[in-house]
Design a protein around this nucleic acid. Sequence first.
DNA 1: ATACTGTCAACTGTTGACAGTTCACTCCCG
DNA 2: CGGGAGTGAACTGTCAACAGTTGACAGTAT
Lengths: 242, 242
Amino acid sequence: MRAASDAQTIQRSSISAQAESYLRGMILEGTLSPGDRLNEVALAEAIGISRGPLREAIKRLSGQGYLTMEAHRGAYVRSYSPREIVDLYELRSALELFAIRLAVERASTADLEALNEQLKAEKARIRAHAAGEHSEPYVAELDFHQQLVALGANAAINEQLQDANHKLFLALRSTSRSERRREQSAADHAVILERVMARDVDGSVSLLTGHLMDSMSNSLSVLGLEQSPETPSERTQHERKL
Amino acid sequence: MRAASDAQTIQRSSISAQAESYLRGMILEGTLSPGDRLNEVALAEAIGISRGPLREAIKRLSGQGYLTMEAHRGAYVRSYSPREIVDLYELRSALELFAIRLAVERASTADLEALNEQLKAEKARIRAHAAGEHSEPYVAELDFHQQLVALGANAAINEQLQDANHKLFLALRSTSRSERRREQSAADHAVILERVMARDVDGSVSLLTGHLMDSMSNSLSVLGLEQSPETPSERTQHERKL
DNA sequence: ATACTGTCAACTGTTGACAGTTCACTCCCG
DNA sequence: CGGGAGTGAACTGTCAACAGTTGACAGTAT
C-alpha cells in the first residue's frame, strides 16, 4: 500500500470524505481486489486517521454497492458472480438503448461533432499504442459510451450507467482485450455516432444493440464462460431479436 | 415522534443497522419529509442510541441517495426538482421497457398466471375501496410493475428499478390519484399482462410505453407542471415516437 | 486418533468526551 | 432606524477508550 503519504497530501474537506474517495480509488485501481477483507485498524493506521471516519466511509461505499458487510466480520470488496456480470451487462444495455434515443432527440449538432473529433483522436491513439499495453483504452471506450449517453441529458440515467460501468470494470478488470477487439470497438463507435448525427433512431439503436452484444459475448468468452449460464438458446435468441 | 419505545423493542442485529432501517422507514412513510434536516443529537436521543451508529446509518443512506450531506451542516432528506422527477420517470421507462422484453422471454407461464390472479384480486379491492381513501393502491400499482419486471429475472435491473420507484414515490407522495386514474391503470396492467402471456414482445413494449407515458404526464399535470420543463414540443414528440 | 469444549487474541460495534465550524442574535456605529 | 461586525450557543466532525463477538487453537475426554 502506498497509503499514508498520499492521504496526508490531500488534507482538505472532511476526513471521512477523504477516506471515502481514497478507498474508492484503491478499489477502482485494483489495490484492493474483489473479495478482499478490510481490516479497520490496519487501514485507519495506513491512511493516518482514526476508525470513526473510516467506518463512515465504509458505510457509504457499502450503500453504493462497492462493499458488502457481514455482521461482526467486517467489510469485503464486493465480488461478482458470472450471473451478476451478465445482469450488469443487461442493465447497461437497458440504460444505453434508452439513452441513445434521447441523445438522437436532444443532442446538439455541435456536441456530436465534438465527440466525433474526440473519437478520431482516440482511434489514432490506439494505433500509436500498438504494443503500449496500457489498460487506458478500455477506460477510453467506456468514456465514449458515457459521453454518448450524457448527450441524452438525463442525469439519473447517466448516474446509473456510470455506476454500472464502474462495477463492470471491477468485475472484468482481469480480462485484457485484444488489439483486434479494440479497433473493432472503435470502428463500431464511429458508425454508431454517424447514425446518431443523422438523427436515425432505429439505425442507432440497432447498431448499438449489436455493439453491446458483441462486447458482452467477448468479455464472457474471455472469462471462459458461456454466453448464458441458464438457458443458452433462449438467451441468445432473445438478444438477437432485440 | 414515536421513537424510543419502538426502537427499544426491536433489539436485534447491530444498532447502526437498526437505525438505518428505522430512518429509511421514517423517510418512506413520511415522518421525515424531503428537505428536512436531520439533527444528530436529537435523533440519536429519540431513537435511544448514541451518535456514532446513527452517523453510520446516515452515511449509508446518503450512499443510497436518500439523503444529501453538506459539510458541517448535516444531512437533509433529499428533495427532487421537477427536472429530476422527469429524469426518474425516464430512468424507470428505460429499465421497464428492457425488462419486459426479458420477461416475455423468460417468465414461466405459471408465474404469469399467478400474477394475473393477483391482478384480478387487486382490481376487486380497488372497487371495494371505493371511498376508502388509502394510499395503498399506489403501492399496489408499483407492485405490479415490480413483479412484472422481476419475471425478467435480472437482479441488477430489479434493484435499480425498485430504487427508482422508491425515489419517485418520495417525490410524488403528496399527489393523490383519482379513482378514475386508478381503474384505468389497473385496466392497462391487465392488457399488458395479456400481451406478455401471449409472448408478444412488440405488443407488450408498445402498450407499456403508452402506460408509462400516461402515468408520467398524469403525475406531472397533478403537480402543476407541464410535461417538459425544457423543450415541450421536442420532448413530447420523442415520447410519442418511442 | 478423533471429536468436543474451553480459552484467548483479534477485530468489530459502541460510547462519551473534545475540537472546530456555522448560524443567529445582539450590540454598536453610521 | 438600518446595517454590519462581534460574540456565543448549537451542531457537526473527530478521536481514543471500552464492550461484545467471532474464529482459531490447544487441551482433554472418549
